[in-house]
Design a protein around this nucleic acid. Structure first.
Length: 637
RNA sequence: GGCGGUGUAGCUCAGGGGUUAGAGCGAGCGGCUCAUAACCGCUAGGUCAAGGGUUCAAAUCCCUUCGCCGCCA
């Protein structure tokens, strides 16, 4: 028995949870459950990152406090835990006192090592990503390359960390520990980045009231990443009076310490974090596992293509476990994958309904018929399924070790397939029909089948904890406290009560489901599916206008009232649903594109004489503007 | 632009110098009838992106081209 410390990133509270968060947590949860079955002393941590300029702003815009904003999002994460059956042991919030202690403690050590100094610097700062950019990196018009939002020239005195000092140690770390960043392609990226040269890192911000005050530097707040990354230690009590967990699971851990992350935060975890730890003289994690992203097909949404995506709907309708199964089966860990309702339905029907569900159903029915509602009375210790099972289990373990969840599941499904082949080759139903109900051979055949199913289902506990447990109970096996030892042949109880099988995974009518999905997706998809002629397009008059004034609309969190100039002397009032992404001040003076011949409409009591165009990024508006300043009223076509 | 990756059956992908290139899904045909129209078997004839090279032998190594993806604070 060894320790196993597993973390997800802490999720930033500017966003409600989406499939990216769900995936990371699902992977971590499956891994944690698997390691618990192996008998490891597992500690599974997740949490939220709550500090920073962006949260402060969002809170101000919504007329609330950062803390209240965070509370709301955290509430949603707690709901998600229940909805998806996550089994984390701890949930840390960076706004907690225990976290602050940890951050102060690590800074103290870095400071003592002489790796902090104060310097004055200026740069283009994006409040969205809380990052400084060089002129070269900016998009035209001084816009953030990530968010497309205008950056601000910021000049201030900050605390700097001597990251440059750790260039060689970090390269050595990567070279001596090929498993430190996985998969290897991410390791290469990190290595290339470090090799190209490390600059010292600003680790504080001046005058930011929402964050941890930088110890020893009045007026400075700890920079979000030094703050956030330290959660992995502070959650273990590092820096507090009781750091026993930290000692057990980190400092003196006799097992792996694994960070699970998405590829977007590779640099922070594989460069900054180990550098901080090296500087602080603290042990490093053993592996940073990097996963890919779920992509949504950019093909048009339509019934025939069937790429509508409704994860919430899928979970509500079919329960969390099929969705967990889908996420883990469909993605090759480390690579990107695309998801759609259609892919989900296909997996559900083929793997869960046809293979797993039906195999259970036929075995249970046969056994009930032959043995009066009970499991077979005679076990069997010599048959082709034993070898198949042992082989499947060993492939399963190998794959789990590599976080290759898809391969682990394929190994189990191979055993299911062999079980079905075995049944067909023995045709126990014929023997039963011939009246050989109590025949020992019937008992052996069915016991073997059920035993293989028991092993598959036990191995599925980390993937589908709720359904797998239900299935095990249905075949007279107690799922509680199951361990990997239960994956060896011979555990199925004989002559035990075997209830009538209920469909665990009722087949989904794919056509109907996708049709409903399309219908529900509604109006905005209608335009996407239908082609229009160029004449139809030209019916829409698009023109460039300049924002003269902007102000919020009372009692509306989304709407702003704009006054735009279309031509000399021609101004219009336009209402735009962009208040969550843009403040009135930043809009004045910019050029926007508006639909000029839209029927006026009243929104929240204010008449809107046009519509401002914006790209909609997951619902967040990003305003369109000409590449350069053009004359008022210029037509867009 | 530099570095890295990738391009294999309709779809998702394995394979990685050596007999007839594989799996799952989907499709077609047959079988079975215990089972959730499930299950089992057979069939898919794919220039292994294109061109060139190395080799007795290349999808597998090398070069070039094209496409796609990632990283380059």
């Amino acid at each position: 028995m060894s320790t196993f410390y597993l973390t997800t990133p802490i999720y930033y509270v500017n966003d409600l949870p989406h499939i990216g968060h769900i995936y990371t947590s699902t992977v971590a949860d499956a891994l944690a459950r698997y390691r618990r079955m192996r008998g490891d002393r597992v500690r599974f941590l997740t949490g939220t990152d709550e500090h920073g300029q962006k949260i402060l702003r969002a809170a101000e815009e919504q007329g609330t406090t950062p803390r209240a904003l965070a509370d709301r999002v955290v509430g949603r994460y707690h709901e998600l835990k229940a909805e998806l059956g996550f089994s984390y042991d701890d949930f840390i919030r960076t706004s907690e006192a225990r976290h602050r202690l940890g951050v102060e403690a690590i800074i103290e050590r870095i400071q003592a090592n002489g790796d902090l100094y104060v310097d004055r610097h200026g740069g283009w700062y994006c409040t969205s990503c809380e990052t400084f950019y060089t002129e070269k990196e900016l998009l035209p018009g001084n816009r953030c390359p990530d968010h497309g939002r205008e950056v601000e020239w910021t000049e201030e005195e900050n605390v700097f960390f001597r990251l440059s000092k750790y260039q060689q140690p970090l390269l050595d770390l990567l070279d001596e520990n090929p498993e430190w960043v996985r998969p290897a392609t991410r390791r290469n990226e990190v290595r290339a980045f470090i090799e190209s040269g490390l600059r010292d890192l600003s680790v504080s911000r001046a005058g930011l009231p929402w964050g941890i005050p930088f110890p020893g530097h009045e007026g400075q707040t700890v920079y979000v990443w030094l703050d956030a990354l330290t959660n992995y230690l502070s959650a273990l009590g590092f820096g507090s009076d009781d750091d026993s967990l930290y000692q057990e699971l980190w400092a003196a851990a006799d097992g792996p310490k694994v960070h699970l992350i998405g590829k977007d935060i590779l640099r922070h975890h594989c460069v900054f974090w180990p550098a901080f730890l090296l500087s602080a003289g603290l042990p490093l994690p053993s592996t940073v596992w990097v996963h890919g992203w779920w992509m949504r097909d950019d093909r048009k949404v339509s019934k025939s293509v069937g790429n509508v995506v409704r994860p919430d709907e899928l979970i509500r309708e079919f329960g969390p476990d099929p969705f967990r199964y889908f996420l883990l089966r469909e993605m090759h860990f480390g690579q990107d994958a695309s998801y759609s309702d259609e892919a989900f339905v296909d997996r559900f029907n083929a793997d869960l309904a046809n293979d797993l569900g039906n195999t259970y159903s036929r075995l249970a029915t046969l056994s009930r018929k032959a043995f009066e509602g009970r499991t077979p009375p005679t076990p069997c210790d010599s048959n082709p399924l034993i070898e198949a099972s042992n082989h499947a289990v060993s492939r399963y373990h190998e794959a789990m070790e590599e976080l290759s969840f898809d391969r682990a599941l394929m190994a189990l499904w191979a055993l299911l397939s062999e079980t079905n082949q075995y049944l067909v080759s023995r045709e126990p139903w014929k023997l039963i029909r011939k009246g050989e109900r109590a025949d020992e051979s019937v008992s052996r055949i069915l016991w073997n089948g059920l035993e293989a199913l028991r092993i598959v289902t036990t191995a599925l506990l980390p993937f589908m904890p709720e359904v797998a447990a239900r299935l095990l109970r249905a075949i007279a096996v107690d799922p509680d406290g199951a361990t990997v030892a239960d994956l060896s042949w011979g555990g199925l109880p004989t002559d035990a009560d075997l209830p009538k099988p209920e469909p665990l995974f009722p087949r989904i009518d794919k056509e109907a489901w996708l049709a409903a999905a399309v219908a529900e997706d509604g109006d905005d998809d209608q335009e996407k599916t239908d082609m229009i002629s160029i004449e139809q397009f030209f019916e829409t008059q698009l023109r460039v206008a300049t924002v003269e004034a902007a102000e919020p609309i009372p009692k509306s969190s989304k709407l702003l009232q704009l006054r735009v100039t279309l031509a000399e002397g021609e101004t219009r009032a336009v209402v735009a649903g962009i208040a969550k992404a843009y403040s009135p001040e930043e809009l004045v003076g910019r050029q926007v594109v508006i639909v000029a011949n839209l029927q006026p409409a009243k929104l929240m009591g204010v008449e809107s004489q046009g519509m401002v165009l914006a790209a909609s990024v997951d619902g967040r508006p990003v305003l369109l503007r000409p590449d350069e300043v053009v004359p008022q009223g210029t037509e867009v076509r």
